[in-house]
Every structure is written in C-alpha cells, then in structure tokens.
Design a binder for these strands. Structure first.
Lengths: 120, 120
DNA sequence: ATGGCTGTATTATGGCACTGATGCACCTCA
DNA sequence: TGAGGTGCATCAGTGCCATAATACAGCCAT
C-alpha cells in the first residue's frame, strides 16, 4: 500500500522508467555485454510496442552517466566497466535511499529480513 | 535508480500518497487509536501545508476499505480492529507484491538481506 | 553513390494525475 | 436558532507522460 503503487512492476509506472530499469538490469547481468551494441531505439520500441522517442528517453540517462557511448549513424555501445560501475552506483543508492525505509516498513509489519532471506 | 524515484521519502511522490502512508503508519502504531477521531481534513491540511482536498483524497481509501467510518458533520473515526486488519493486509501485500522484487533487486546488486538485518 | 540503417531535434496533440478555490449539506453546541 | 465545526461535490488549472508525423545528420555495405 506504500511503495506498491510505484514499483517497477506497476503498470502505471511511466514506460520510459520501466524501460530504463530493464536496460540497467540487462547491463548489470551482462545481457548487454560491455563493448557490444545496444538494441536500436526503433528495434526496442517495436519489441515493446512503444514509441522510439520513449526508448530514446530511457537511453538518455545512461549516456549522461557515461555508461553508454553513441556513434552517430551506427548505434549505442556499452562502455567498458559499465556493468560494475552501474552495479556499485545502484548498490550505494539502494543502501542510502531505499533500504532504511524498507527496513522500517518491515519492522512496522512485524517482518524480519533475516527470516525472509530463505525465499530464493 | 529503480525504486528510488518513487519512495515514500521522495519529494516528487504525490502528496496524497505520502499522507496516506503516514496515516496508515499512525493507525498501525496506535497514534490514531481505534474508536478515536482522526484529525479533520482541514486540520491535517494546515499542519502539512497541503490542501484539504488532498488530505480528503488520502483519507478516501481508508473509507473504502472500511477501516474508517464517517459521521457527516462530525468527523472520521477509526473502526474497531482497524490497526490489526491494516497491518495484516499490508503485510500480505508487501510479501506478495514488493518483497519478491526487492529480493531480486538485492540479489542483482550482490546484497544479502540477512547481512543487512544488522542495521537497526 | 545510393539505399538502408543508426540517433536525434522539432512540433503538436491527447490523456491523465495532482492540486487548488469555492460552495454546499450536515452535525453539534451554546 | 445561529455560529462554527465536520466531510464532500463541482469545476478549473497545471504539468508530466506518451504518442505521432516529419525531418535531419551521420555511417556502412552493396
């Protein structure tokens, strides 16, 4: 009832944000390997039934962060070390911004993270 | 980078949702005791510098869920057993909708809930 | 060189969520 | 009975999001 309305799985969540989350996960997991080319905005748009501009908006922040490089007329490539940099950045942000709140919320609901760790 | 933009602490989060979270927590923690009257929409609005209608929207869902009863011209009261019902409902929703995603996200970031349980 | 692929800038539009101002119906209490 | 407190309905304004239709600039293989 708190975060639920805005989780990554929430269909109401803006498309460009859902795409951004998915792309970040794919980079970290090596689905989009370093040095390799990312799917074109048009291809990814067609795959998701979205607008190419919406996909471009999802790609935008990765460029700003230097995790992805653009070769005009060719495509976008994953920078060397992008996966580890992205993972470190997300981990830091998670521990700083999200975890304390999740922890407090679970405490209020009478839940212990250590117990729930069993669920793989 | 995923949930961060939509956490309860995020200033971009809609006011009525932040209020709703806070009210739910207050009911569960007994800050608003069962049988007692809730702060009026105008009072709570003034306290938070928000619009009375925004507060009313935050109260809305609690009425729909039968956790709060309205006496027209008087005020809104917390129903008997509302705290426990609310806690049970939130816990179920958390485990079903939020925890799996959080768990997967932590796994991707190389984090173990059992280890982080130390942080109180 | 030409066709086909890249990303991107521009402009316009529709939809929707959020917030706000005003006024009304209702109740309680002096 | 009148004053002041409830919740709530109506209408309007604002901004973000997504889409669309073009058009342009660059690269590459044929």
């Amino acid at each position: 009832m708190a975060l639920m309305h805005l989780m990554a799985t929430n269909p109401n969540r803006p498309v460009y944000l859902k795409l951004r989350d998915q792309i970040a996960a794919a980079i970290i997991d090596g689905v989009y390997p370093e040095g390799e080319m990312l799917p074109s905005v048009r291809a990814l748009a067609a795959e998701h039934g979205a607008n190419p501009l919406t996909v471009a908006k999802a790609y935008q922040q990765f460029q700003n962060d230097g995790l992805v490089e653009v070769q005009r007329g060719v495509g976008m490539y994953v920078v060397k070390g992008a996966a580890e940099r992205l993972r470190a950045r997300e981990r830091e942000a998670f521990l700083r911004d999200e975890w304390p709140e999740i922890r407090a919320r679970m405490a209020r609901l009478g839940l212990d993270p250590a117990d729930l760790a069993i669920f793989t």
